Amino acid sequence: MTKALKAAVAFLPRAWAGAWLALIPMFVVLAGGPLLLAGHQLPLMFAPLVLIFSLLLLKLISQGALYRIALFGKDAKSEGLGFGGLQIARPELRLLLASLIVAAFVMLIAVALFLVFAVALSLSGLAAGYDNSVAAVCAIWRRHSGADYVFIVYIIAATVFLIFVALKFALMPAANIGSRKLVTLNVLGLSTGNVGKLFIGLITIILPFALVCGLAVHHFGHASAFISLHSALLALSIFGLFPLIVGFLASAYRQIMAIRSK
């Protein structure tokens, strides 16, 4: 995946040039919306819903723009790329529908894992004497003795499994844009044998950003610098991390498809 990481870095200038009009509004909504709500400058009844809807719409538009640019290069405009990355067409609708289907599928898996855990916890008697399951789990995590380890291992294993499932669907946006058709659960075959590489690649991209954010909060996290720090880290994520991840996944998708076509 070294080639995909190099492609992700090289993709940044093209992402800024082609999708600036989609990325800037996303930054404005994320940076200004919560601050306006906190300062009671927006009505609290419907404003949060409007902000969430606006953010999801802008993310959908930005994804469509970035993946078009990453996958089709100079032909991105012929694939429906709008001015500055603003467009709503069939690819965005495919992304939305595929995201809803995959989210429902992953939710079913998560619910099944939770039900197995809840039933086992109830039958074990370890939840007796606690107000709710959350309190019981917190007690198990702190106490970690005897049968507690069984549930601790289950929680860890379930978390790892859900991360694995999420990685299996990581190429879904690229597949929907690149194949020009709706791709949902059949994307699982694309990532077969490549989950580890995708994980390492994404960690390589995300970890430096996480370290920078952690150091910035540690050194400049005082209240007087909160707004500036929030805006700076947000800009770093939207204009840096987001395009890098798209560039990496798009390159990985192209490489996998090239190998499969041989």
Rank of each mutant, 00 (worst) to 15 (best):
P91F: 05
A110N: 11
L121V: 04
H230P: 02
G33Q: 03
A8L: 03
S124C: 01
P91V: 04
H144M: 07
H222I: 11
G193Y: 06
L123I: 08
G82D: 01
F164D: 06
I259M: 02
G214I: 02
H218A: 15
I155V: 10
H230L: 10
I52A: 15
S145C: 04
V106N: 07
P34K: 12
L23C: 08
I152R: 09
I61F: 13
L60K: 08
G125V: 01
L241G: 09
I24D: 05
F220P: 05
I256C: 07
I206A: 14
V9K: 11
H40L: 09
L244Y: 02
V137E: 10
R254W: 01
I238R: 11
A98D: 13
I155C: 12
K3N: 14
V102A: 14
V165S: 10
V195F: 08
A225H: 14
F169Y: 14
V106F: 08
L113V: 03
S99C: 00
L49V: 05
S224P: 03
K181M: 13
S99I: 01
F169G: 02
R14S: 15
L171R: 10
V165T: 13
A250T: 03
L211N: 07
Y67A: 06
S145Q: 15
A216G: 01
I163W: 12
A22H: 11
I206F: 09
A258F: 04
L167S: 04
S228F: 12
I52V: 15
Y130C: 02
T204M: 13
A225I: 05
G18L: 01
A250E: 00
I88S: 07
S78H: 11
A7D: 15
P91Y: 09
L229D: 01
K6W: 07
F27W: 11
A17K: 15
Y154I: 03
K181Q: 15
A210F: 12
L185Y: 08
L233F: 01
K59N: 14
V150W: 14
S224N: 09
F209A: 07
D131C: 00
F226P: 02
A19Q: 01
L95V: 02
Y130A: 05
G32I: 00
I140V: 06
L55N: 11
A127C: 07
F46S: 02
A235S: 13
P43H: 06
V50T: 06
I205D: 01
L234M: 12
A118F: 14
L86W: 02
S145Y: 12
L57D: 08
L126I: 04
P208C: 03
V160Y: 04
F199D: 05
F226E: 13
F105I: 10
M257K: 15
A166D: 12
K262S: 00
I206Y: 10
A118I: 09
A210V: 12
S237E: 15
L97P: 02
T159F: 05
G221D: 03
L60M: 06
